[in-house]
Design a protein around this nucleic acid. Structure first.
Lengths: 214, 214
DNA sequence: GCCTTTCTATCACGCCTGTGATAGAACGCA
DNA sequence: TGCGTTCTATCACAGGCGTGATAGAAAGGC
């Protein structure tokens, strides 16, 4: 088994470089040569790990989605069972969880930036079509699940249409991300988080209502 | 003064062609030659009206923003004074007005698509920087004005933070547009409009108060 | 030692891009 | 008619792109 380097590590290294280029220059200007330079690799080496540009791009987008998903799972692990928390804390936890999707720090900001570029490219580039759709449906289902759980725990206002509220909250998250990434001087992370919390608070029980059934 | 053709009409013709290419192929693949072909013009003629690619692109983005603005103004004209309408109708009118920003029909859909591509490009292309920022601030101020008017007319819930609510509604509109453009099979125009109305209804007087919706 | 696989590095090709330069047609006015 | 401006059309160039081909280095198993 000849194995000088770990190919998976190499691919991760290349993908990291690609993300940096995308953030700095945009997906439009993210060429094989630019990525190779950023990764300090020869373009020949790079092509040894990725058969074609499309392979690289798809792999990169898939990696990005995987990373987001694993960070979300990690967050779920961290908060554990939220069934037996006091109601205001449940809201706070839900907000903190959904905030993983917002560009509130440099790390998430880079990720959301890449996410946005890939997904807008997917509109006209069939190579990304399935991944983009899967991502959009994924966040939708995620938001729906959060709302459903909150509702089941009696934390939400009665009479809400969960379908509509799912679309509303999902669109709100997407919109906050979009504006925060494109116009950080207009929408800063703090306001971003405030808006999210305000929204969840709006969906919750009015103050003074008896809390969790159970 | 020799004048065979109307230069303004020509420029409009070219910009229309450019928009079609952007919608169909994405801004990334919108080259001078592609636009010239779409406009059924020789690239030489095209370059007679636009000194450089950057000139064309900036002109196109500015045109798009002008068209959106004029459609909004036209809508304002159409509804006239809304001060003396019954409250539920005021909400409906405000929703209809803000819906001008959503891709609810093919025309607006194309416009929002172009808007999105230009604004995402503006993140890394300084040529669009000022226009993009101006657009983002414009919609923000627009939303704020709508909310302020509704509030002044007593149509809104008391205790709302107009600043936060402006950001929230703006992000919601952006998010709806984004999802409707990128994933029309997930978020259809009908749901889009429903979400907007639900949101405005949520901001209005609490349920049970005379005049509040449904 | 040798052999095979893995990896790095480079060349060349065809394609597309924006753009400078330029020639000629179309047209209105004198 | 001829003149000058406006417009159309084309060529050529340099630069960037993805990619096929290929040669050579590096590394481990035998």
């Amino acid at each position: 088994m000849p194995k000088h380097v770990d190919p998976d590590a190499r691919r991760r290294h290349v993908v990291d470089a690609l993300f940096r280029v995308v953030v700095r220059e945009g997906l439009q200007r993210t060429s094989l040569r630019a990525v190779a330079d950023e990764a300090q690799l020869n373009i020949g080496s790079l092509r040894h790990y990725f058969a074609s540009q499309q392979d690289l791009m798809r792999f990169a987008m898939q990696s990005m989605l995987d990373r987001v998903e694993s960070r979300l799972l990690e967050h779920v692990e961290r908060i554990g069972d939220l069934g037996n928390r006091p109601r205001p804390e449940r809201l706070r936890l839900a907000a903190g969880f959904l905030a993983e999707l917002l560009p509130l720090d440099e790390h998430r900001r880079a990720e959301v930036t890449v996410f946005l570029d890939f997904n807008t490219a997917a509109r006209t580039n069939p190579a990304f079509g399935d991944l983009s759709r899967q991502a959009a449906e994924g966040t939708g289902k995620l938001v729906r699940r959060v709302l459903t759980r909150l509702d089941a725990a009696g934390a939400l206002r009665p009479g809400l249409d969960i379908g509509i509220e799912t679309e509303r909250l999902t669109a709100l998250l997407d919109g906050l991300s979009l504006r925060a990434v494109l116009h950080p001087e207009v929408l800063n992370p703090r306001t971003c988080a405030d808006v999210l919390f305000t929204h969840l608070d709006d969906l919750s029980m009015p103050a003074g209502t008896p809390g969790s059934a159970h």
